[in-house]
Computed example of a mutant assay.
Amino acid sequence: MACVALQCAPLSAATLRTATVISASTVKLSDLFADLEPGQDKVLGPAPAPGTSIQVGGGQLIAIADQYGVDWLDQSASALATITRAGRVLDKSYFADLVEKNLPDIGVGAVSVDLFDFHPITVPPNDPKPVVLSDLNWDQHSGRFSATVYRAQPTGDITQDSFMLTGAIHAARKVLVFSHALQTGAVITPADVQINDSYTGTPNAKTYANEADVDGMTLANTVLAGEPVLDRDLHRTILVHRGDPVLIAFSAPGIHLAATGRALEDGGAGQYMRALNLATAMIITGRVINSSEIEVDPGSTAIPSDSNTLRRLTASARANTRADTSLR
């Protein structure tokens, strides 16, 4: 009698699932209630998009239970059930690989793919082919590409079911990289660099492919092993300083002349600089051979060393030195 008066629920009454993760594209009654009667389970409607959730409040839960004859323990208008659809995130690396696989076979070898204004998407976790790449257009001169991506399982939202993928494709090339980490001020030797024949990075500065081009140059920044050798990271090691005595050499077929001079500006190995010929009081331009010698090219023209010219050259050399120092 007491049980009848209290309207006790039967022993087989269902229980509410307050949090459920599903992988199907539809929500079933069993996603909301456990311990249903055999054959009682039904499809209620479409599931949320992969990676998202829906919440079902107490009033709606009571209405669903009444509609499908579910005896629900602890019915309450304040109850809440959350259904989350499992998802797999397709990130930059996924789409970069997809683009690479869809490139035409033109013998470019290894490539790297950069994506512009990219936003990851979430798809069903067990779908082996969740998206389709279509209409790939690649300008091999600039490296830029565009393509359209379609979801294999549309969500019904046209803003989500397809989108434009854009970026740049960079073919592998031969680049000089650092063999090990080096500190600012280090003077580069051939042991400090090595060739990477399949570099696919995208440095936005000049790179090198020949050890001789950087031998003897000085690092302006600290670098790490494997980083490309960039022009912006290097400056010429100063061999001749302004005011230093130098030997001025001139060579032509059957002729070799030498004179003493004084450097009017700093100069690095192989760099052209100006010097004063002390014997003729003329200003010449020559290429730095070592710390005490510069070589004048045949056809080079000397200019008179009047006081105004010397003052202007000295001021220019000082300004260049200050600018070079500030860049380091």
Rank of each mutant, 00 (worst) to 15 (best):
P203L: 07
R287P: 05
D213G: 02
A13D: 02
G254K: 08
A172R: 05
V56N: 06
L90V: 07
Q140Y: 10
S307P: 11
L44F: 01
G185S: 11
T122H: 10
D197A: 13
A281F: 12
F118V: 03
L36Q: 05
Q271Y: 07
I255F: 09
G270D: 02
A315V: 11
R232S: 15
A181Y: 09
L224D: 11
S251H: 05
L32I: 04
D213V: 04
A263L: 07
P253I: 09
D233V: 00
T18F: 00
P120D: 14
A34P: 06
D71T: 08
D117K: 14
F250A: 05
S142M: 04
K174S: 15
V99K: 11
A19C: 09
A19Y: 13
L224M: 13
P104T: 09
R173V: 03
T82M: 10
V111L: 12
E293D: 03
P298M: 12
T309S: 13
L278S: 09
A19F: 13
T20H: 12
Y272P: 01
S198R: 14
V56H: 03
P125M: 05
K129L: 14
L32E: 02
D66I: 06
I195F: 11
I195N: 04
Y150T: 05
H180N: 10
G267T: 06
N210V: 04
I158H: 14
G254A: 11
H170P: 00
V108G: 01
E295R: 11
A252D: 12
D297T: 04
S23W: 02
D157I: 06
G216M: 02
K174W: 00
L80T: 02
Y199G: 04
D41H: 06
T285A: 13
A24I: 01
L136W: 07
G267E: 09
L90A: 05
T184I: 08
A212G: 04
P120S: 12
G286K: 07
R311E: 14
G268D: 08
L230W: 02
K129Y: 15
